[in-house]
Nucleic acid binder design. Structure first.
Lengths: 195, 195
DNA sequence: GTCTATATTTCGATAGAC
DNA sequence: GTCTATCGAAATATAGAC
């Protein structure tokens, strides 16, 4: 119970990120100007620059939150041998589905602004500490130790999850999310008959 | 064998579209300037405006080619009743896979520049004659006549195909495309056990 | 059809007062 | 921490000669 900065709930910095995420989803990153973000927030452009060094930094901050969601899942690969990875994959997918549902907007940001996000990786501190999660997964798919068929099906399963869950909330009509998630889990399970 | 304009092979207009597609994939639509397109083509910006009314028009032209690829497949839905759609879905997917492979770059353009392309739909002649293919598919997924599970699996199957085939050529290591396609077909088939 | 300008606009970013 | 004011750059698009 510190008196100051107990938690950054509702701090300006957080509100900037909220509004930015909102607008980046509506209009895309490039088409969203800092003026729009500031206007919707009721401040001026210059105020944004007190909290972030650049527009790219706002996107980077949002992207890093997505990173954090996937990092510990990917980290487990490093302690598993190839065969164990294949065996534990379906279980990992179940966790993954939960996170996609709980953080749909962050995943949507990544899906709908791929070009902008890829160029984050080239520039900045994004390199030093952060190996890009997508690159890491690509390297994983190129691993000769795993049977090609298994790798293809892994890629398929991720795409299937994204495709079915990203549009959740309207696309399938007026259906509770849980029902859709149940069907997605079943479908993905059929992609790994042995598991 | 007409003497003039026999076919627009290698016409400047076509070369502009080729270079634009190339750069839109490398850098994204927004980060690509008309100057870059003109430079790589060996002409000036002004020359581009002789062939296209705006930068958006270049993207629109590329997008319409993707449209044409999917339209006749979607058109067949209109003459099928709901049950027939479910039954013929796996066969349609097989055709679809062929088209994705044959036109990978156009699909990549759509995948990596979603925000830019969605805003095409709001503005222009894109509305009059063209109902957006994505909207059409969304309406399809909302159709109550089909069992929800079937619709979820349909969405999954498309995502699986995209995810596995878009990265083809490098992502899975040095493997011929045909082999990967074969595994994708098998995987997608497992999503529709009854079919 | 392509060129050399140039117009026009918008955006990201900074300086400095409060 | 937020403001006013402005800079400088870059982009789209146009005008008009060749």
């Amino acid at each position: 119970m510190q008196t100051t900065e107990r938690r950054e709930r509702g701090s300006t910095r957080e509100r900037i990120l909220d509004v930015a995420l909102e607008l980046f989803l509506e209009q895309g990153y490039e088409k969203t100007s800092l003026r729009e973000i500031a206007d919707r927030l009721g401040v001026t452009k210059a105020a944004l620059y007190y909290h972030f060094a650049s527009k790219e930094d706002i996107l980077l901050e949002l992207h890093l939150r997505l990173h954090a969601l996937g990092r510990d899942i990917l980290d487990r690969f490093d302690v598993l041998d190839d065969e164990e990875i294949v065996r534990s994959w379906p279980g990992l997918l179940d966790e993954f589905i939960d996170r996609v549902i709980a953080n749909r907007e962050l995943f949507l940001l990544h899906q709908r602004n791929q070009s902008a996000i890829e160029q984050l990786a080239q520039n900045e501190r994004h390199q030093a500490e952060n190996e890009d999660i997508q690159q890491r997964f690509r390297r994983f798919l190129a691993n000769d130790g795993l049977p090609l068929e298994a790798r293809v099906r892994m890629a398929c399963s991720l795409g299937a999850i994204f495709s079915a869950l990203m549009g959740v909330g309207g696309v399938f009509g007026d259906v509770p999310d849980e029902e859709i998630v149940r069907y997605v889990r079943a479908a993905v399970r059929d992609l790994f008959p042995a598991g």
